[in-house]
Amino acid sequence: MSAIKTYGLVKQYKKNIAVDKLNIEIRKGELFALLGVNGAGKTTAIKMLSCLTKPTEGDAVVCGYSITREADKIKQLIGVSPQETAVAPNLSVRENLELICGIHGFSKDKTTAKIAELSEQFDLNDVLKRKAGKLSGGWQRRVSIAMALISEPEILFLDEPTLGLDVIARYGLWDVIRTLKGRITIILTTHYMEEAEELSDRIGIMKNGRLLATGTAEELKTIAKADSFEKAFVSIVKEDLV
């Protein structure tokens, strides 16, 4: 069963086509990575799928609803952790979590239970009282993902979750993402090849707004006749192998 299916999605900003006729199908419970260099159109694709921006052409069905006509319903079913820092800096970690609980209309008891659950899952207990803006980049991303999960979404969008993090923080975040695998559908954008290979069930490679290839890391290696995923990626992107 598909969690997301797109039908010729296009996003055009004046003369610049950011996403060009994107057709993908992402299965329920799958971790799907959109991999590409900067400007490939990954973030724009995620913005359309999470109803942040409307497509210029085409449509997509997310959790059974159209992104062009039923955005309000989709917003109840998705969680988004944006690329940049997306926490309220002067609020404590607990208050950030409480804010999202409040926005989703949780009762006091449900808020307390959800914060306890996420604090355990994301190892946040020691930083709950600290101001979110004073945390390191890695911890802010952790809090950001926890905030995205509060509404118990069916689909989680992670836009470049480890961008700019040091290797230790990146590995820590990978562990967090692994714990979510299989429980919900995750769409992750990244330009780190090892991240896509390490975490994803399937990978879509994008360049200049177009989806060049889709498959597991092994399948993409076969398509590109390469012995490593990095070589496969370079080969696909350079030669536009589809």
């Binding site: 917003k75 905030m147 509404s151």
Partner: peptide, 13 residues
């Protein structure tokens, strides 16, 4: 400028 508002735009607010 941070992505905080972008995050909130994906909520029912």
């Amino acid at each position: 400028e941070t992505a905080f508002l972008q995050r909130l735009y994906t909520t029912p607010l």
